[in-house]
Amino acid sequence: MPRRFAPPSLRRHLALCGTLVLVASCGWAGAEEGDVGGGPGAPTGVTAAAGSATSVHVMWNATARVDVYEVYRGTTKVKEVPGSQHMVDVTRLRPATLYAFSVRARDSGGRLGPPSRQVRAKTPAAVADDRSAPTRPSAPGGRAAGSRAVQLSWSASTDDRDVVSYDIHQQGTKIHSVGGGQTATVLTGLRPGTDYAFTVRARDAAGNVSPASPTVRLTTPGTDDGRATAPTRFRATSHREHGAYHVDLSWVPPRVDGEVTEYQIHLDGRPATSLVFGGRTPRGRAAYSFYVGRKAGVTHRVRVRAMLPDGTWGGFSAERAVTTGTGR
């Protein structure tokens, strides 16, 4: 696919609005029929925690339009997992060693997005001949924290050496991991109105795993129509430059607990491009402009949604219609 570049006026516009990392270069210029698309964005919310003396558990938030995630140790790719998976255990590491990890997303067309920020984790020292597992975590409890998250807590396990990490399981599948010094965590990216069953297991440096804690059963409340997480005051206009038409968008970011750095633009009912704001994210009003073709009198439908801090997509903004050549 040939490389495309933003027109000069748009580059000036982005310079005024702050640093904007364009995740999908193809979103600047597609076929004249309006075939606008692009690659995935950089994964956000990446964390790393030692799971044993020879393993580190890496986690990240979901990214739109992903077929595969690539996990890197330094500059070396060490794992690939399907797009439905947002965590991995990196194994065969050296004890007592500091490592740096990052994640990249790849879509079904083979387009590789930019790397996430690097996160670091140090494996503990190895313990010889340790075959004793930690005790079972006790007194687990929890509560729903809104419709898409829960808070869990438990009493600490004991071990003849040290507890290195706690693994949280949902219906027998590990979905989260925290360091051995923690006895509470928040699980995000859950669905509203859904029953969940969680257990906790402790792990030591030798990789010995405790029995599962008693089960904590929680239900996230209600249903979510997306209105509370949708961008508001959404506007769409068009302008002509260098013989081509562009759609100019602006909106007010949703009010959520945390920063919103990634958005997805839908054009004529399908995803067109994603964008990630780097540096200072817009607080009052965000703006974005992209190429849609050279024909006047073409009407497009456009809307936008935000990637929320919990790793899920928020609700869509109102849909606007914009016609090239009319300025509106």
Rank of each mutant, 00 (worst) to 15 (best):
P7M: 06
L10R: 15
L10G: 04
L14A: 12
L16Y: 15
G18F: 09
T19R: 03
A24K: 03
G30E: 07
A31D: 10
D35Q: 14
G41S: 08
G41L: 00
T47M: 09
A48K: 09
A48I: 09
G51A: 10
T54V: 03
V58T: 09
W60R: 14
N61Q: 07
A62E: 04
V66K: 06
V66I: 08
D67P: 11
V68I: 04
Y69K: 02
E70H: 13
E80A: 11
V81N: 12
S84C: 01
S84F: 07
H86G: 01
V90P: 08
V90I: 15
T91Q: 09
T91H: 04
L93F: 07
P95Q: 08
T97I: 02
L98D: 05
G109A: 14
L112G: 02
P114H: 05
V119Q: 12
V119T: 10
T123W: 12
P124I: 07
V127M: 09
A128C: 00
A128R: 05
A133V: 05
P134A: 04
T135V: 06
G142C: 15
A144C: 03
A145N: 11
S147F: 08
S147N: 11
R148C: 04
R148Q: 14
S153L: 05
W154Q: 03
V164Q: 09
D167A: 15
I168L: 14
H169A: 06
Q171G: 01
G172P: 00
T173H: 06
T173V: 13
T173S: 11
H176V: 00
H176Q: 05
G179N: 10
Q182A: 13
T183S: 08
V186Y: 00
L190C: 01
R191L: 12
Y196D: 01
F198Y: 14
R201H: 14
R203F: 10
R203K: 15
D204Q: 11
V209E: 14
V209K: 13
S210Q: 11
A212I: 13
S213L: 14
S213C: 12
P214M: 07
T215L: 09
T223Q: 10
R227G: 00
A230I: 10
P231Q: 07
P231G: 09
P231K: 10
F234H: 09
G243I: 12
V247K: 06
V247E: 04
W251P: 02
W251A: 03
V256Q: 13
D257K: 12
G258E: 03
T261Q: 05
E262M: 05
Q264A: 03
H266P: 01
P271M: 04
P271C: 02
G279F: 09
G279H: 10
R280W: 07
R280Y: 04
F290M: 04
Y291V: 00
Y291D: 09
G293S: 05
K295R: 15
K295A: 12
T299K: 12
T299L: 10
H300M: 03
R303A: 08
V304M: 02
M307R: 09
P309W: 05
G311S: 13
G311K: 13
G314E: 01
G315S: 11
T323M: 11
T326E: 04
R328I: 03
